[in-house]
């Protein structure tokens, strides 16, 4: 069963199309990372799925149910732009929100959840005294307290300090290992690269590229790089032969001292290189395959489309 299934979903505000007929699905157990520039329509898309705004057209189902009201107690949501009740404490917020979902948490559960997001010391604080980052953490706490099967997180780490961002990333990973499916957006590509099992890149209201990290990287136009450390002494003749071979087969290459750097198309090119070097009696000290970062993939995609 697909945990999220979206069919030709669109949203326009006035005559401005913000989401243009997105069709996609998310499988159970995935951490789906949704990328895109500011204003691409990511939050608008999430807000439609979570019942915050109404779609202009199209349909979707969550947890196999197309009447979303029926599964609202099985999902958790951190919306993008939202606010809390200023006069209520963090503890009371969690209790109130859980009850709305039809779940009556014990004191231990509430305290444990606050601890999970690092807010145990602010339990009795009113929200008017919370910083932006603390509110973000409470937002995550209210989304995860009921152990939802499906979790929507719109920029869970934006605005929090470095250490907290790492903790949140680890938390998402842990929740996922416990069986939760997660749909998140982020502008922090390192984080997405670390934890997301599938990535969608959105531009102008459409999903332009989608796939696992590996799939996105292998279709990356500027391909992979092999970095080979060779023995110090290469005679002039051998060097010329090697350069000639590389010129014919790979075009783009470079020498940095005794390091040979070659742009290759696929992993299978590496044995070809090694065989050639061995034939020329070159000593090989180490071979590294360098993949493009998600950031490079993202930037290239974003410009290309």
């Amino acid at each position: 069963m697909n945990i999220i299934e979206v069919n030709d979903l669109s949203k326009s505000f006035g005559n401005k199309n913000v989401v243009n007929g997105i069709t996609m699905k998310v499988n159970k157990g995935e951490i789906y990372g949704f990328l895109g520039r500011n204003g691409a329509g990511k939050s608008t898309f999430i807000n439609m799925l979570t019942g915050i705004i109404n779609p202009s057209s199209g349909s979707f189902s969550l947890l196999g149910e197309d009447k979303i009201d029926r599964v609202k107690n099985r999902i958790g949501v951190l919306p993008d732009y939202s606010s809390f009740y200023d006069s209520m404490t963090a503890y009371n917020h969690l209790r109130f929100f859980s009850r709305i979902q039809g779940f009556n948490p014990t004191k231990e559960i509430i305290e444990h959840t606050l601890e999970t997001v690092g807010l145990e010391k602010a339990k009795k604080k009113k929200l008017s005294q919370f910083s932006f980052g603390m509110k973000k953490k409470l937002g995550i706490a209210q989304a995860i307290i009921n152990e939802p099967e499906l979790l929507f997180l719109d920029e869970p780490t934006s605005g929090v300090d470095v250490e907290s961002a790492i903790q949140i990333k680890e938390l998402i990973d842990k929740l996922n290992k416990n069986g939760q499916t997660i749909f998140m957006t982020s502008h922090n590509l390192n984080e997405v690269e670390d934890i997301c099992t599938k990535i969608g890149i959105m531009k102008n209201g459409e999903i332009h590229s989608e796939g696992t990290l590996r799939e996105l990287k292998t279709t990356y136009q500027s391909s992979l790089t092999a970095q080979i450390k060779v023995g110090p002494a290469i005679n002039k003749h051998a060097r010329q032969e090697i350069d000639q071979f590389l010129n014919n087969e790979f075009q783009q290459f470079d020498w940095e001292d005794n390091r040979l750097i070659v742009n290759i198309q696929e992993e299978d090119d590496i044995p070809v290189l090694i065989r050639m070097l061995i034939n020329k009696k070159i000593d090989i000290y180490s071979v590294h395959l360098i993949e493009p970062t998600l950031e490079e993939v993202f930037l290239e995609r974003d410009v290309a489309i």
Binding site: T50, G51, I52, D69, K72, N73, I75, V77, P79, Y81, S82, S83, F84, Y85, F97, I100, Q101, G102, Q142
Partner: peptide
């Protein structure tokens, strides 16, 4: 604040 309510019920 309504955003936190409508996604729950």
């Amino acid at each position: 604040t309504m955003r936190f309510l409508v996604n729950k019920t």
